[in-house]
């Protein structure tokens, strides 16, 4: 199964087929999501209009956790099976995850000011989310921290795997500890605590963000694959040049004889 996609050319062929669909789905879902989020959904009984920030804040936070989970999976696959595309997939995912984490933090802060009365507090949920952002930055920085690409990938993969412990901590922080942040509304045992008129825009933007991820991931993957080929070619060209140099000097020596 894994080997089917090991070949970059096969992957790119598959990407060609998926990409237009991802693009269309993202744009349609996001337009519909914005329409419901801003025009066609009621204000909240407590929060009034400010509840509309939820429709982009919560999906951003979901994407932050989703991308990190993917990062941990690709890192595991890269380390255990040495799958050639796994590390590239991690590299293509990390900036998207970091961006969504950033957006979740920023929109949460903007939402917190009018509702809670503060831009930021160091409670368990907000702190663990902040750490997630730094884990992403660490992963990105480590990738290029070594002279040989392999060493960097390995170090980054280890960080991604160790840091995965943070994902369940983020999810359950609101249940395990006293936090200012409210508990989960959608993914909980007793069913969603959000009225269906508000669940619609939330799920639409959430799906749009998923589509955006797939779309941009494929674009980033093309870049990463080309970049990896460049690295491989440069290495072989240097080797060829060295071989050629040795050959010409040998020939000169032979001529001098």
């Amino acid at each position: 199964m894994l080997n089917r996609f090991a070949n970059p050319i096969r992957f790119l062929r598959l990407a060609d087929q998926i990409q237009p669909w991802a693009a269309i789905l993202t744009l349609v879902l996001f337009a519909a999501g914005l329409y419901f989020a801003l025009f066609n959904s009621p204000p909240d009984y407590q929060q009034g209009e400010t509840v509309r920030i939820m429709y982009i804040h919560v999906p951003s936070a979901w994407m932050a956790l989703f991308c990190y989970t993917l990062l941990a999976i690709t890192s595991g696959v890269a380390m255990i099976w040495k799958h050639p595309l796994a590390n590239l997939a991690g590299r293509a995912t990390a900036p998207i995850g970091a961006t969504f984490t950033f957006l979740a933090l920023i929109t949460g802060s903007i939402w917190g000011k009018p509702m809670w009365g503060t831009w930021w507090v160091w409670d368990a949920r907000l702190t663990s989310m902040f750490i997630l952002f730094f884990l992403y930055l660490g992963y990105i920085a480590l990738q290029d921290a070594f002279d040989n690409a392999e060493g960097g990938s390995k170090a980054a993969a280890i960080l991604a795997l160790v840091g995965f412990i943070n994902v369940p901590i983020i999810k359950f922080s609101v249940d395990w500890w006293n936090t200012l942040h409210q508990p989960a509304s959608v993914i909980k045992f007793s069913g969603p605590a959000i009225h269906s008129t508000m669940l619609t825009p939330l799920l639409l933007t959430a799906l749009a963000f998923k589509g955006y991820y797939v779309w941009l991931f494929l674009i980033n993957m093309r870049g990463e694959i080309a970049e990896a080929r460049c690295r491989a070619l440069q290495v072989s060209q240097i080797q060829n040049a060295q071989v050629a140099k040795v050959a010409t000097s040998d020939a000169r020596d032979a001529h001098a004889d």
């Binding site: 900036p95 998207i96 961006t99 955006y212 779309w215 941009l216 674009i219 980033n220 093309r222 870049g223 990463e224 080309a226 970049e227 080929r229 460049c230 070619l233």
Partner: peptide, 16 residues
């Protein structure tokens, strides 16, 4: 972020 991704793709494919 999308523009950054597209630029990265074009740049690395031209380099290749």
């Amino acid at each position: 972020l999308f523009i950054v991704g597209v630029q990265f793709q074009t740049k690395s494919e031209t380099k290749l």
